[in-house]
């Protein structure tokens, strides 16, 4: 598998570490249910998902990849922090 790092370009997946579904962290007072959703419950679709990868052996950016879990096709990859690559 090769991931299109928005900074480094396409790289072998062995340079990356996976974190899983990209979700927004709830506010501390968002309540038990929101936190349960964030930490544990997943749609886990057989299809496109957005997920976090860490380019640990490259630029050390966290990136957000849109990847199809059924085919491994990758349709998008952006910096997890949004804009501002350097």
């Amino acid at each position: 598998m090769r991931l299109p790092c928005p900074i480094c370009g396409p790289r072998d997946s062995r340079e990356f570490i996976y974190r899983g579904t990209a979700l927004d962290r709830p506010a501390p007072d968002a309540g038990t249910e929101a936190w349960e959703e964030y930490l544990h419950l997943r749609d886990n679709p057989a299809g496109p998902i957005r997920e976090f990868w860490y380019h640990h052996a490259g630029c050390t950016a966290w990136i957000e990849v849109t990847r199809n879990t059924a085919t491994h096709e990758i349709s998008d990859a952006v910096l997890a922090g949004g804009e501002g690559a350097a």
Partner: peptide, 13 residues
């Protein structure tokens, strides 16, 4: 393999 997948196949690393 360490990524979400339903492909029932893995990669080289």
């Amino acid at each position: 393999d360490y990524y979400a997948s339903y492909a029932a196949r893995g990669n080289l690393p």
